[in-house]
Design a protein around this nucleic acid. Structure first.
Lengths: 157, 157
DNA sequence: AATGAAACTGATAATCATTTTCACTTATTT
DNA sequence: AAATAAGTGAAAATGATTATCAGTTTCATT
């Protein structure tokens, strides 16, 4: 039915790890989420389907899903881990709005090439990289301009 | 005597924050450190000069030094904050050896320019960015090759 | 130099995300 | 079905960081 779920079950089986109702519900929530959610948010959503689930179980399951290569933990430096889909996804970097927290996933092959060159120039064997561009998204910029012009009582057409 | 210390004292004075022996010692340790140290490491070093100092004081002082723009907290995702010099420093990114933890500070204006373009293409107003390239430094690569060739009992000239 | 208010310090407690522990339950193997 | 292995949930533990608070120090003013 769901190829990712198939893959996950296979991964668990290969590693002698059992499949369970909890793990199934958590995987479902993860697969259906459209944003990058934290453990607390995933916990809340799973709780709707499985009200007796424990917090630690969500942690354990998400760590497993990461190990299986289906999810990736992302760290923005605010002390809260969030998760994003990784299965069948290309590597990408992030544009992050510092106002509303919106994420945009980006990939720039020119930058990637320059990164390889840069590493090479320093005799580094590059394994992976992380790039985050922080700024204000167009919606937040628009909103900020609006409120500025209202404050200044300027005409705005 | 020390222009950074002057600057720091001025910053504190401007903000009605007092100067103290502890803050002085902590600043000294920070200014003299050549690597990116954690709070625990700074605490140990300060302790040599000032054995009664408390852990919290180091946290407080380092946060102040950051606010003054002299230090910057860096986060590698291992849950430990380290600090680097910022005063009079250009922005830079990091090459990080995943084996020995060595840092190399790098700056690539071509990449920076592409980042600006990338943000613009997504209608983002770029404020700052963070780029970390993880890999193995040449020393660690050499060491790894050595031990491999020893294991394989190959000749290595 | 003395004073008093405001800021600082150090020890400790609190917080917060995450991990571990452990008694108990569920699944798999024999 | 019994034995074995793994999973679960609640609660405790952990580790980095921050807050609290009584006692101390600083600094501007007498």
């Amino acid at each position: 039915m769901n190829s990712i779920k198939q893959f996950y079950k296979q991964y668990l089986q290969n590693n002698k790890i059992r499949y369970s109702a909890q793990r199934d519900k958590i995987l479902d929530v993860f697969l259906n989420m459209e944003r990058h959610l934290s453990i607390a948010q995933i916990y809340e959503l799973v709780r709707n389907k499985y009200s007796h689930i424990g917090y630690a179980t969500v942690y354990r399951a998400m760590n497993l899903i990461c190990k299986a290569g289906i999810a990736e933990k992302i760290d923005l430096g605010d002390g809260i881990s969030r998760f994003e889909h990784k299965y069948g996804q290309e590597h990408h970097d992030h544009l992050i709005c510092v106002n509303c927290g919106k994420f945009i996933e980006v990939i720039d092959t020119q930058i990637e090439e320059l990164q390889r060159q840069l590493a090479k120039a320093h005799k580094f064997v590059l394994k992976r990289h992380k790039m985050q561009l922080f700024g204000s998204c167009c919606d937040c910029v628009k909103a900020a301009k609006q409120s500025l012009s209202v404050l200044a009582k300027d005409k705005q057409d």
